[in-house]
């Protein structure tokens, strides 16, 4: 097992397992130690002391979605930049110009979204 990638994976899997399992374990252990007296009123959703006036799960404004949408496009762009950023130093001006073209392309997308009013929170 001298493959560094595999040893990284195994380490991180162990790490994640511990980080996931310990809080769950704590919750389970203290289940026997803490009180549990469910009452109807206690289990009502909080609404400043009133009965719930409306169902929370209802169709919502699409404007929220626009942000998620622009977000994912920019995330992909950022990651592509991450892919080339480490080697950019010894590539000279030509490579920098190529990256510049890419950034301008994506900046155009931002500009479009801006002009179309997709970046306004309602």
């Amino acid at each position: 097992m001298n493959d560094p990638y595999q040893s990284d994976v195994v380490f991180l899997l162990g790490f994640a397992l511990a980080v996931f399992a310990l809080p769950v374990f704590t919750i389970l252990v203290f289940r026997w130690l803490r009180p549990s007296r469910p009452e109807r009123l206690k289990r009502e959703p909080y609404e400043s002391g009133m009965p719930q006036a409306s169902v929370p799960r209802r169709p919502f404004h699409m404007a929220y979605y626009n942000f998620a949408l622009v977000f994912i496009v920019f995330e992909v762009e950022t990651l592509l930049l991450f892919a080339i950023a480490p080697v950019l130093r010894d590539q000279g001006w030509a490579a920098l110009a190529e990256v510049g073209i890419f950034v301008v392309l994506v900046a155009l997308g931002l500009f479009y979204a801006w002009r179309k009013g997709a970046l306004v929170w309602r």
């Binding site: 994912i72 496009v73 995330e75």
Partner: peptide
């Protein structure tokens, strides 16, 4: 990346 755009 393409899959992400497709999902969007």
């Amino acid at each position: 990346g393409v899959a992400a755009c497709e999902a969007a």
